[in-house]
Design a binder for these strands. Structure first.
Lengths: 143, 143
DNA sequence: CAAATTATTGCAAAAATTCGCAATAGAGAA
DNA sequence: TTCTCTATTGCGAATTTTTGCAATAATTTG
């Protein structure tokens, strides 16, 4: 985690914002919690480290990082979950039946992104696409 | 709208559910409100027609239709919006700066869907993909 | 290093969304 | 049509998320 602090700090300060202890803690926590986590789960974790930290601050902090595109927010199985955006662009296949989430490298989306840019001038965020559907397992078990 | 009632009614009853006046009204309302609408906007509209109808019922009804995949729920510009799923599969390009939404026919996604099915056994819901990014207008105005 | 500026926090209240449960009312059977 | 069964509604309360504002603390300026 610590190796991230410098990067983040510069990235944030360059835009006139501040990397406060609260924000650092949320980032570190999200880093420690491997994959997706709900606001509530994040608050519980963070709260253990810094009891004074308010829930509203957690929500605002998450929203703040989402806007900076350091973390991604998505709806998975009816829950709003947050995830640290890593180095590797990837997208999510979310099963609407079992809520299982598969992550795929974004290579298969590159052509689509190119096409969107050329034809529509739209610069797609490759690394935060959620595709709903039915996974192989559920397709097999319910024909 | 009325021509929908039969289709919907059968579709819903076939699964053991009921097409109540409340549900019909929500569908009709969503049909009348051209594009995306928030739960609040829908409630306001619906409430004018049927004042006794409770907010909780609106939320439950929307969730119900989302599960039946008759309406789609997405996060656009930080708001949760609902939209009647039409006949034409399409996807959304949402600009993260101006929240403008473009709708595109799903043809460009067909290859991707095929690939997902063949390689991962994942049956993607083509008609409800939201791709975030920056639209042509915003890219031009903020270089 | 002190003062000034302003982004950020904590708090409490508001707003949005969900939930439990008794009452209601569709849909099918008799 | 009437009866039965159970999905659905309305209501109020609980939970989650957002917001306004004064207090705090991180930068910048002098």
């Amino acid at each position: 985690m610590s190796h991230h602090h410098l990067d983040f700090s510069q990235l944030i300060r360059a835009q006139g914002y501040r990397l406060t202890p609260q924000r650092q803690l949320v980032l570190d926590t999200l880093c420690a919690m491997s994959s997706h986590a709900t606001a509530c789960e994040i608050y519980d974790q963070v709260s253990a480290q810094m009891p004074a930290l308010n829930q509203a601050t957690v929500y605002r902090t998450l929203e703040f990082f989402v806007e900076l595109r350091l973390i991604a927010k998505s709806d998975i199985g009816g829950q709003t979950v947050y995830e640290l955006v890593g180095e590797q662009p990837h997208y999510h296949l979310v099963c609407r039946q079992c809520s299982h989430v598969a992550e795929l490298a974004a290579t298969q989306l590159a052509d689509l992104a190119d096409w969107l840019l050329v034809e529509h001038g739209f610069q797609a965020d490759l690394d935060h696409v959620v595709i709903q559907g039915v996974c192989a397992g559920c397709r097999a078990s319910s024909p």
